[in-house]
């Protein structure tokens, strides 16, 4: 992948509330044109970082630029940034389209884009309903429509799937995919790593306000080795199988009555095939054999537990 110029650059960005450090000297560049997944446990500092990038919260130390402009001058770049932070906050008595009209005027955006963004988020037929009457999913989608009003180069979405049902989550994922396909940079935080895994091509992971990982999502997945799961019928057969796997030079672990072999550096498919052949030669009938490839969630949990540090 060709690296493009940075959409967001953080240089020692720090936020302290009294003695508590919410964001601790974050230094990272987020390339333009990517969907960057922003991951971290609750209280890791994701929302505070986003709020600083959007000019809502003043940093205690450090600097940052957004679309090449310093964050102490949000008036220079917010016109090219769309954001949904801490949930969709719009005027409950106003209809969907009235809310967008207010924001279009406030941001000096082309109100002619309102029908298009409502169509994009699937609210064209409910635009005349009051915001207070919307479901949570519809509110989230209207919040994203509001973020898209200015045809932004950068979209910042904080937990856009919060409170959504599975259908709503799928719709949101597809929506983010459509937005990203238009060439925009998207910075999106979420606890639902399985959802994020399908849209993010770049990852920014923080824990306790500190940077843990910042790079391509594909490289992150490569940090964790795939595993091969083997099963045999009966305890005795499982013990024989464990000895056999060990004799072939693999470390073996147990999980839920099955053997788990980590394929460090080896091709997991070939390893599974050779273990299958060895078991058959030894007269062991396998009841289970499959390759467990690392997910974003498993890799992330490994990372947080220090396994990959």
């Amino acid at each position: 992948m060709t690296e493009r110029s940075s959409a967001v650059c953080l240089d020692g960005l720090t936020k302290r509330y009294g003695t508590r450090v919410a964001v601790d000297a974050l230094t990272v560049d987020i390339p333009g044109g990517v969907v960057a997944g922003f991951i971290g446990p609750n209280g890791a500092g994701k929302t505070t970082t986003m709020a600083m990038l959007l000019g809502l919260v003043r940093p205690s130390a450090g600097t940052a630029t957004v679309l090449g402009e310093p964050i102490d001058r949000p008036d220079r770049y917010l016109g090219r940034v769309g954001a949904l932070v801490e949930g969709p906050a719009l005027w409950p008595a106003l209809t969907g389209v009235e809310n967008l009209r207010v924001l279009a005027r406030l941001g000096r955006h082309d109100a002619g884009r309102i029908p298009a963004v409502l169509e994009l988020v699937g609210l064209a037929d409910r635009q005349g309903d009051r915001f207070a009457e919307y479901s949570l999913g519809m509110k989230q989608r209207l919040g994203i429509a509001a973020a898209l009003l200015g045809d932004p180069a950068l979209l910042v979405l904080d937990e856009p799937t919060n409170g959504l049902d599975p259908v709503g989550m799928t719709e949101m994922r597809e929506l983010i995919g459509r937005i990203a396909a238009e060439g925009r940079t998207v910075l999106v935080s979420s606890h639902l790593l399985s959802e994020l895994e399908q849209v993010a091509d770049w990852l920014l992971i923080i824990d306790g306000g500190r940077l843990v990982y910042a790079d391509h999502a594909s490289r992150f997945a490569q940090r964790t080795s795939p595993q091969i799961v083997l099963g045999a019928v009966g305890h005795g057969e499982l013990l024989r199988l464990a000895r056999l796997v060990t004799e072939h030079g693999f470390e073996v672990g147990r999980q839920d009555g099955q053997l788990v072999v980590t394929a460090h550096g080896a091709d997991p498919g070939s390893t599974a095939a050779s273990l299958n052949q060895a078991a058959a030669s030894a007269g062991i009938v396998l009841s289970e054999l499959h390759v467990l490839r690392p997910t974003l969630e498993s890799s992330y949990l490994n990372l947080l537990q220090g396994a990959d540090r």
């Binding site: 801490e86 906050a89 924001l103």
Partner: peptide
């Protein structure tokens, strides 16, 4: 309601 935040994202 948080609408001041939404407004500031459009008019910083």
């Amino acid at each position: 309601r948080g609408t001041i935040r939404t407004s500031l994202l459009r008019q910083p």
